[in-house]
Every structure is written in structure tokens, then in C-alpha cells.
Design a protein around this nucleic acid. Structure first.
Lengths: 192, 192
DNA sequence: GTCTCGCTAGAGCGATCTATCAAGAAGGAG
DNA sequence: CTCCTTCTTGATAGATCGCTCTAGCGAGAC
């Protein structure tokens, strides 16, 4: 009932999140999702009448918000050190998952960018919120707004690109390296 | 014959490259490729007995090499200016293609990273060659090797990440911004 | 001519894709 | 109890997936 309702729904979301992140959107079948979630096939269309697309949209939103919350770990005092630590943490997670768990939405975002306008907009909202949040944190640390925005955009871009390289090369070096470069740039900006 | 042989083969490669770049690997069907290439379906398996995977591997290699050649436009004298110009060019191409043509292999690379070891290795070779080439150029410009390597890795990562953001947000700002930040970092490194 | 061979051409295979549908199980409300 | 809603369950549809296979075309070799 209301209890099992939420569990099944949540299991479907969790399994979808994992499969989309690892195998992509078109690379994941709805049947595969229900098997992984140990949910009856029909339940997927009960909870998500919009089908795979609606499921993906909810996954992108919830995983995007969840990921944004981890950014809060970057403390305002000594932002640069916080950035290095955060990137090191992301590298550890990636390595521990066999180079599977990087960005929760990147693969899907690239897949739908030119093929599914509705999903593209959802991914855009998530990336924008991440950039906004990073910008706010840089401003808080004392960097003027235009420079903070440029740094924030660059930080997210560096992270995403480092994830691509790390997953492809099966090496966390690109992530650690990106953390260094981003932290250096922030330290540089703090001098003015 | 030998003439038509090569044209059909090349048309298949060209169409595959475009479709993989825009719609991804799993998002592109072999039938779709032959239609786009105006090639008979059977010809695909005549020229590429290994099927979709072999076709993708050749596409990644050839497009990777072709893209690497465009890096040569970054002149050694005033590397930073060359980088800004190169990123601006990439932004123009992306915009002109309706935000479809960014990195020729990024979407595919993310899709296969955890699902197809053979293709993953091919994408890894391409990314590595790009990093090596950028590093060589930075060394040539007078940056010491370890720093040049770090900068090169960061430059490629920034580019890839900026492409994700630009395609998703339908805005070239992330690319221009990434060019600025990378160029700044290179200028900074040249001071030592 | 006739033979050979590279290539064209597309029907068709089994599997898988997303999605629909109808039937039933499990409680809460009256 | 009956009624009603919520959720489970899986069979099934219809399309598409990657791929195989056979038949035939057409130009050069002889």
C-alpha cells in the first residue's frame, strides 16, 4: 500500500539512477530496470505513466539535487583546500565503484542533448543549479561576482571533463589534477 | 569496384561519425546508418564484418586523428592566444551545427566506458594521444614537462566538460570561458 | 564469350525494445 | 460483509534491434 508504494517507486528510481549513470539512457532498457529493482514490470508504468522519459526526468532531478548537496562539504574557509578534498573524494568514489560512478547525469545529458528536448531542459536546469551554487560559494569566499561565475562554470566543466577522462582511461589522475588546477585558479582569484 | 568500394565505405564512416557524435552509440541503429549513407544494408557488413562495434572503433580512431590535427592550429608563439582562438573556433562550429557537433567521441566514450571494453580502450588511446600532443606543444612553448602534462590534461578535460555544458545549456559561453581559464593557466605557467 | 570477384541489394531471423492491457491481490472506509 | 482504491503481475503488441544469408549485378581477366 502506501508503504510498499513508496518502496517500489524508490527502488525503481534508485535502479534507474544507477543504470543510467553507468550504461546511459538508450543503453538501459525498462525491463532491465524492473529486474534490477525487483519490481513487477507493470509497476513502472503505474508509478511513471510517462514511461522511460518521465522516469529519467525524475532521476535527473533527484540525483542532481542529491549531488549538489555534496558540494556543501566544500567549506568557505580555505575554499581551495575544500575543492582539493572534494575532488579527491570524487576520485575515491569513482575508483571504488570500478570507474562506474562519476557524474550521475553526464552520460544521459550528452545522449539527449540533440535528441530529446524535454530531457535536455531538465539536465540544463541541474547543471545551472550546480554552477549557481558554486558561484555563490566563491562569492561568499570573497571573489567578485563575474569572476566567481567564470570560475564556477570552469570548475563544473573541469569536473565533468575529468570524469570523462577518468572513466575512459580508468585512472583517477585526471580528477586529482583537475582539483589542483581549479583550486589554484580559485587561490589566484582570491589574491585580488 | 575499387572506386565505388572506397566511396561507400567512406560514406558509411562519415554517416556513422555524425550519428554517433549526435545521437550516441546505442542511440544509433545500423539501419539508420545505411540510410543516411545511402548505402545498401548488406554493404555495411561487407566492409565491416565486425559489425557496429568495428565500425565504431574505426570511427573513433579516424575522427580522433582528424580532430587532433586541428590542434596544430594552436601556434607555439603566443600559445595562450592560440588556445583562445581554438576554443572560439570550437564554439562557432558548435553553434553553427545547432549545438550538435562538439567532441566527436565524448558521448560514445561515456556510453562504452563501463559496457564495452574493446571500444573503451580505443577511446582511451585517442584521449591519451590528444593529451600527449597538447603536452608536447606546451613543452615546446617553454613549460617544464610535469607542469605541461598537468596543464594538457586539464585543457582536454576543460574542453570536454565545456562541451557537455554548452550542448546541454545550448550556449557557447562555457566554451569561451573554458578557453579563457585554460589560456590564463598557461600564461601563468609561462611566467616561471 | 565465360569466369571470377568485389560489391549491391534486401528479405528475414531471433531477440529485444517501449508500452498497453486486463485481471487479481491487499488493505481501508462505509 | 461490500465497495473502492492502490498496487501487483505478466502476457502481449508492434516496432526496432543487430546481424545473417542468398541472389544477382557488373566490370576486368582470360
Amino acid at each position: 500500500m502506501s508503504a510498499s508504494r513508496s518502496t517500489t517507486r524508490l527502488r525503481l528510481l534508485d535502479s534507474s539512477a544507477e543504470l543510467f549513470r553507468r550504461n546511459g539512457y538508450t543503453g538501459t532498457g525498462v525491463k532491465q530496470i524492473t529486474v534490477e529493482a525487483k519490481a513487477p514490470f507493470g509497476s513502472l508504468y503505474h508509478f511513471f505513466p510517462g514511461g522511460k522519459q518521465q522516469l529519467a526526468a525524475e532521476v535527473v532531478r533527484t540525483e542532481g539535487a542529491r549531488y549538489a548537496r555534496t558540494f556543501a562539504l566544500v567549506q568557505v574557509e580555505d575554499v581551495a583546500a575544500g575543492i582539493r578534498a572534494w575532488f579527491a573524494g570524487a576520485a575515491a568514489v569513482l575508483s571504488a565503484s570500478g570507474f562506474a560512478d562519476a557524474c550521475p547525469i553526464a552520460t544521459l545529458a550528452l545522449e539527449v542533448a540533440s535528441t530529446d528536448e524535454a530531457l535536455r531542459e531538465v539536465t540544463a536546469e541541474v547543471f545551472t543549479s550546480w554552477i549557481d551554487q558554486a558561484e555563490a560559494r566563491f562569492v561568499e569566499a570573497g571573489i567578485d561576482t563575474p569572476r566567481a561565475r567564470a570560475l564556477a562554470m570552469s570548475a563544473i566543466a573541469s569536473l565533468e571533463g575529468a570524469f570523462i577522462l577518468a572513466r575512459t582511461l580508468r585512472d583517477t589522475a585526471p580528477i586529482i589534477n583537475a582539483g589542483e588546477i581549479v583550486a589554484d585558479a580559485v587561490e589566484q582569484a582570491l589574491l585580488y
